[in-house]
Amino acid sequence: GHYRIRINGREFEIRGISEEEIRHLEEALRNGADEKILKEIVDRLRG
């Protein structure tokens, strides 16, 4: 998958993330885990 997200007015492209991972992120966001989720995304993109 290849997705664009906007955070604090800046747009980011996220590549190589699966539909299942996105559902997991959405679930966590609904549970209020904003900073933790951003850290997970950044860590994943770093490799």
Rank of each mutant, 00 (worst) to 15 (best):
L38R: 01
L29Y: 05
E13G: 01
R23T: 10
F12K: 00
N31V: 10
E13W: 08
Y3I: 15
D34C: 04
G1W: 02
K39T: 13
K39F: 15
E40N: 08
R10E: 15
D43P: 04
L45W: 08
R6E: 11
E40F: 06
R6M: 15
I22M: 06
R10M: 15
R10P: 00
G16Q: 05
I17T: 02
G16E: 06
E13N: 02
E40A: 12
E21W: 07
R44F: 14
L38C: 05
R10T: 15
R15Y: 14
I37E: 09
E35H: 12
R15I: 15
I41Y: 07
E35V: 08
H24D: 12
G9H: 01
R10Q: 15
L25Y: 03
G16N: 12
I5R: 00
L38Q: 02
G32T: 04
I22H: 03
E27A: 11
L45M: 11
R10W: 14
Y3D: 09
L25A: 01
L45T: 04
R6F: 13
I22V: 08
E27R: 07
F12E: 02
G47E: 13
I41D: 00
E19Q: 12
K36N: 12
G9I: 01
I17N: 02
E19G: 09
E13Q: 03
I37G: 05
R30P: 01
E27W: 04
R4D: 03
R4C: 14
R15P: 10
A33G: 09
L38T: 02
I22E: 03
L38I: 11
E21L: 05
A33I: 13
I17W: 04
A28H: 14
A28S: 08
R23D: 05
R4Y: 06
I37D: 07
R30C: 08
R15D: 05
E35K: 05
N31F: 08
Y3R: 11
I41K: 02
R6A: 08
E11W: 15
E20A: 11
G1P: 15
Y3W: 10
S18Y: 02
G9V: 00
K36L: 13
E13L: 07
K36D: 11
R30F: 08
I5S: 00
R10S: 11
E26T: 06
K39W: 15
D34F: 15
R46Q: 15
H24Q: 14
L38E: 01
E13V: 12
Y3C: 14
G32I: 10
E11I: 10
